[in-house]
Amino acid sequence: MEPETTRSALRDFCAERLGTDLAADFVRLARPGFELTEADPGEAAGHSRFGGRAMLEPGTPWPMCDGFPLSLIAVLDTGALAPWLGDVLPAGTGLLNFFYLDTDSQQCDPASYELAMKYHSFDAQLGRVIAARSAHAVETDPPARSSVFDPVDWAAKPGFDFPDTWDPIWRTLDLGPKVDDLARAMPGQYVKEQLTDWSSRPGALVTDDMAFGWPKFPTGSSPMVPWGEDPTLYHHLLQLSGQDEWYIGGEGGWMHWSIPTDALPTGDFSRAIPTPDMW
């Protein structure tokens, strides 16, 4: 189904279980997202992939942290995702390159771990997102000490995603006057309990690797944004639950990148930050 047809069917599905008013408020939280899986030949979403070499415009500086090179983790081809993204991104955004300081893979430089200890795991210095116009981007070799992971092309299944049960955005939802104190304390859990057969909803996405949509938090926490900032004012860009070659936090943790929502209309990805969930 097309995005608007799917959203309409999703609204009807939720209204049957939540009532019209709460369903409308709930579906307002829905964001387009993409289930990322290893692509069969010819099924890749443009240049979208885990690993490989960065796709940068000539002359673009390689991102560094205190003079140490970050590693290219993934590329998203937003042109291939555009029909479902709608106005989330400005037209012509092109390719998004996701970087982070590799401290955990078998090929990481030993000096990276000592450098990482100087920062919080969600410090902006440890990660970057760099956009490149598709017509100008070329595969770019990394500098020495930057890890290069075997590329895995991604297929991208579109749908609509909703916040994790622990996301603070739930506090903006109006549950109505009849719910009890427990429901008000845990609105995400309350709504999900009312939505029977949730996995069969229109536009369902069931994945640990996600482009856009909402971040998920296995630790039961919430987005790790800089101290004092409001996580509800950020928009999710990419979630990786782990790959064979690379895991954030060693054997555990999910990696995310997010961006202040007010930076999206102008495509200012210099403000994007890593927002990992570690254990």
Rank of each mutant, 00 (worst) to 15 (best):
E4H: 14
T5D: 15
T6C: 09
S8W: 12
S8Q: 14
A9S: 08
L10K: 01
R11K: 14
R11H: 12
F13N: 00
A15D: 07
E16R: 11
T20M: 10
D21I: 02
A23N: 11
A24D: 15
A24S: 14
D25W: 03
V27S: 05
A30I: 00
F34D: 07
F34N: 09
E35H: 11
L36V: 12
E38Y: 08
D40Q: 11
G42P: 00
G42F: 04
A45F: 02
H47K: 08
R49M: 03
F50C: 05
G51R: 00
A54Q: 00
E57A: 11
E57G: 02
M64F: 06
M64I: 02
G67L: 07
L72D: 02
G79S: 09
A80E: 02
W84I: 07
G86N: 03
L89E: 04
L95S: 10
D102I: 03
S105L: 09
D109I: 11
A111W: 12
Y113C: 06
E114H: 13
L115V: 07
S121A: 08
D123Q: 04
Q125V: 01
A131M: 04
A131I: 04
A132T: 06
A135R: 15
A137H: 12
T140S: 15
D141P: 03
P142D: 01
A144R: 13
A144C: 05
A144P: 01
A144T: 07
V148Y: 12
F149E: 00
D153W: 01
W154L: 02
A155K: 03
P158Y: 13
F160Y: 03
D161Y: 06
T165Y: 15
P168H: 10
I169C: 14
I169P: 05
D174P: 12
P177C: 06
K178E: 12
K178Q: 08
D180Q: 12
D181N: 15
D181V: 15
R184K: 15
R184P: 06
M186C: 11
P187W: 03
Q189A: 12
Y190C: 09
V191S: 04
K192V: 12
E193T: 09
Q194A: 06
Q194V: 07
T196C: 07
D197E: 10
D197S: 06
S199D: 11
T207G: 03
D208R: 09
A211F: 10
W214N: 06
P218K: 08
T219G: 11
W227P: 06
E229C: 07
Y234P: 05
Y234F: 14
Y234E: 05
H235E: 10
H235A: 11
H236P: 03
G242A: 07
G242D: 07
Q243I: 00
D244R: 14
D244E: 10
W246V: 00
Y247A: 08
I248A: 10
G252F: 11
H256P: 13
S258M: 14
I259Y: 10
D262R: 13
L264E: 11
P274Y: 08
P274Q: 10
D277C: 14
